[in-house]
Design a protein around this nucleic acid. Sequence first.
DNA 1: GTGAAAGCGCTAACAA
DNA 2: TTGTTAGCGCTTTCAC
Lengths: 337, 337
Amino acid sequence: MSYTIKDVAKHANVSIATVSRVLNGLSGYSKATEEKVLQAIKELEYQPNAIARGLISKKSNTVGILFPEVSSQFSAKILRGVEEAVHRLGSSVIVCNTASHGQRTMKYLQLLSEKRVDGILFVSESITEEFYKTLDSMKIPVVLISTESYQYPFPFVKVDDKHAAFTATDYLVRMGHSKIGMLGGNKEDLIAGQPRIDGYKQALAQSGLPINEQSIIHSLGFSFKDGFTGLPKLLEQSSDLTAIFAASDALALGAISAAYKLGVKIPDELSIIGYDNLPIAEMAIPPLTTVAQPLEEMGMVATEMLFSMMEQGRRVESRILPHCVIERESVKEIKPI
Amino acid sequence: MSYTIKDVAKHANVSIATVSRVLNGLSGYSKATEEKVLQAIKELEYQPNAIARGLISKKSNTVGILFPEVSSQFSAKILRGVEEAVHRLGSSVIVCNTASHGQRTMKYLQLLSEKRVDGILFVSESITEEFYKTLDSMKIPVVLISTESYQYPFPFVKVDDKHAAFTATDYLVRMGHSKIGMLGGNKEDLIAGQPRIDGYKQALAQSGLPINEQSIIHSLGFSFKDGFTGLPKLLEQSSDLTAIFAASDALALGAISAAYKLGVKIPDELSIIGYDNLPIAEMAIPPLTTVAQPLEEMGMVATEMLFSMMEQGRRVESRILPHCVIERESVKEIKPI
DNA sequence: GTGAAAGCGCTAACAA
DNA sequence: TTGTTAGCGCTTTCAC
């Protein structure tokens, strides 16, 4: 059992109130008592009990973060930014892996509520009515990362998916491509799925290029496997493609592996641009050209938003962070005909 | 402000002691009062305050985990296993990114101590005397993951690095290779660096193959970049190598990328086996044959060890988890001469 | 079967 | 400048 403020008080021959004062850097004691107290703290190696502090201050100095999948590179990068900012701001972060499972998410929300976390970060998933209700009843700030809600008023930080997809596709156009296919994620996904398809189509339309539904593959997810199985299908449907926009880096890597198996040379016979700029992008062969989302920064910005809501008690503006294309070697410039 | 046990008691017309009893599933009340209390809890949507509970029970139901780098795939996989087990066991996990920085680590230890976490998981890094002292003074269970300490008595869970490196190298031998090089990590690293080199040498020795220091590159780390710069050097020192054991998957992928640039065909001209079996291993071209560490399982097992120490108060045995080689396509079988 | 009351370690209002 | 005291929300004796 470690020492309490009482022990320190006794040791320093002062009251616990005085100890509390020097502990919290308040005024109301002489230099001499401060010395005495500090000395006692050092001698006893006293550590204030954050739980007792939390009980009275009604602050746990802890925030919760919910991921559909903590072990993905995507989540890990966001977590890195969050962890950095949270600690800089004097708090800790509890991580929860929801596995995109509603009931599990509810259990976590319950848990975080009982633990009296000061705020919640919600990543990638969409907010159901059930989530909203309990989030709302907790009366603590919530910030969404890499997702948004059209129905519920939570501030968010993300990239403009449609715009980023436009940028990726437009980059391909500028590199001389006109037969451009897309390896899409789940089109039911209104936040990260459909908007990227819209951006792709808009880029094509803006350059006067035809939009052909045969040139799009809609996968169920954004995974390597989806890309691996998706590419052959896409090439079968549209054999004259010279470039592909993949809606995630994992999808793109899967496509590259499939292309390798098919003997299709990247980028000589087929160019590919990805989306995310995960660490794997630069490990690809060839290194993957991709549209970067500033994941760590998104985590940091979201955390800062959360804290300013916690401190000032008022809502904060959502933030759209800039994306940019990272040129590597998976896209080849071709001469327009 | 949410409701307290007092409100529930008032609402149900019982004492707070009774509410506490039903909350904790203790005996000492009639079926009828239980109903009343449960009803009141439901109506008020009462949520017990875990902080108040923690103050009195002296348990925070929280454990801390320290990583040198949370955002690596390696850490993320371990975290996934830990998160799973921790929640199954009724706790939460606070993550800390030490950046392999001593002072930062000390700050986190301090923080976790003040938060009165029930246990600590320490990943990949080695325990300094300073860490040991504060860990020891916290008087809570500690379990090491993917590292161990020769000087301090913390139980650990890891793979047998030397043995796993032996297995990897021996696999290459069995596939007919006799000119085998190694892309090593930091040899100053007594836990993950040197043992893998030892395992490699032992496998060679056991098969009567010569050990040539020119066939080993010692990098500073285990990263993609290290592999990328390491391979050309290795090939320059020993141009007749037919196979390479890389001490990590990242190192192996870096080597594969470098080989690609050099025009060296994998596995036709050079075979490569990795170490870790991260998700990136199967995304490589060609898919990487590697020695798998069961990272998620390591996280789960370590967590279970931690909890059994917390509950039973006594030390627990360290665990060496089995490794195995995952055959993919980066190693070619060659006929012995 | 149920309630009153003490107290976990701390902060903050109020006195002195 | 300093101490006394009343809680924060809960668990747990100890009475009844």
